[in-house]
Design a protein around this nucleic acid. Structure first.
Lengths: 198, 198
DNA sequence: TATTAATATGGAACGCGTGCCAAGTATTTT
DNA sequence: AAAATACTTGGCACGCGTTCCATATTAATA
């Protein structure tokens, strides 16, 4: 294929670098002033470009917000790891991790909304973000814990995914349907865990 | 307490009637043109009042959107009941209900977002809406099904709430984190049910 | 250097949720 | 009739996400 005249397309790494730059600024705004302050206009001002340029690099706001996932998820993961140090028995470790996971999201509704309630239709395109890989790592922590409890179980994926989505669901219900008389969160998490262990 | 001069406050029933009127119009717009068409300005035009008048009767948009819950929930409930006719054994009935529940929300992302992703802080004030009561009724259907499976279990509330929030969580994950390689939804639902039966 | 294609920019615009405020209207007591 | 109180209205404003468009600016080829 012969080159044609004109300015060439942005290189892949250029795109990724610029995206990372925007993501970094978004993260900084979020950390200092919270989610409410992260707007396209504000972000553009911070980055030092026009709002339109951002739209040239991202599909929309949701696409940018993903860059904050990694931050939130590692924060949550740290909290779990911190508490896991006080526990040795596999079952206890799993229980503690699950309880901490749920507690984190019920205690931090803003973070929950950011990660699990991005309300746009998000395509699963070619490009895989770093955050997605990290997300996978954070989630696989639970499959490791489950494997410790069930060393002879060959397939723990169904158990893992059920646990994760179940915990996320508990947090969701607490955050968005507070009017409903839910039973204690720890009891629900405990009950959810029986489906993993059983 | 003696009455003071001036126009009296709106009576309770007047408020409720007006709220119901607004909710009815919102429902009509939603049914014909979808959620995207339900905006405050548009709704006011439809009702025949100024946008501010709506704010005098509701705290915000989320508060109005609750009026649509009942519609969506009964639609879902109908679907479950429809399929339950082909099943008699308690366990099968529970399984079918759960699978249908999850399938409904994964098949109707818009409805899911409406009911479970109202993203404002919603107070649990004095006034209980009709929709809330109906919500309770729809959810209690599951506790009935569980009771049929476990006739000797005195307290099924933890089991019910765990099941519901777990199913909602599964649907959430499918709707908002499609990039993650989740296992089959039916398998997850099945696994979740073991925590209820166990 | 001239041409050409990709990108960047600024500005305007749309519709959104929401708040504020001054003016008007309705309904009661005095 | 007059005064007092509660509600409605319309208009303006803010900031938001997003799109469009005309106009630079950049970097390659001819």
């Amino acid at each position: 294929m012969t080159r044609r005249a004109g300015r060439p397309r942005r290189s892949e790494i250029d795109i990724l670098e610029y995206q990372a730059k925007i993501g970094k600024h978004a993260l900084e705004i979020y950390r200092v002033e919270g989610f409410g302050a992260v707007s396209m206009r504000r972000l553009a001002k911070e980055v030092g470009c026009s709002p339109m340029t951002i739209y040239a690099h991202f599909e929309g706001k949701t696409d940018i917000l993903r860059y904050l996932w990694a931050d939130v998820l590692s924060d949550m993961s740290d909290e779990i790891q911190k508490r896991l140090k006080f526990s040795a028995a596999p079952i206890e470790r799993l229980q503690l991790a699950a309880q901490t996971f749920v507690a984190y999201w019920t205690d931090h509704p803003d973070q929950y909304r950011l990660v699990f309630m991005s309300n746009d239709v998000n395509r699963a395109d070619v490009s895989t973000f770093i955050s997605d890989e990290k997300t996978l790592a954070h989630f696989s922590m639970f499959s490791d814990l489950i494997r410790e409890v069930l060393p002879n179980e060959p397939d723990v994926q169904v158990r893992t995914d059920t646990l994760i989505s179940g915990m996320i669901g508990i947090a969701l219900c607490m955050n968005t349907i507070p009017d409903y008389p839910w039973v204690d969160v720890t009891l629900m998490t405990e009950r959810l865990l029986t489906s993993v262990i059983a």
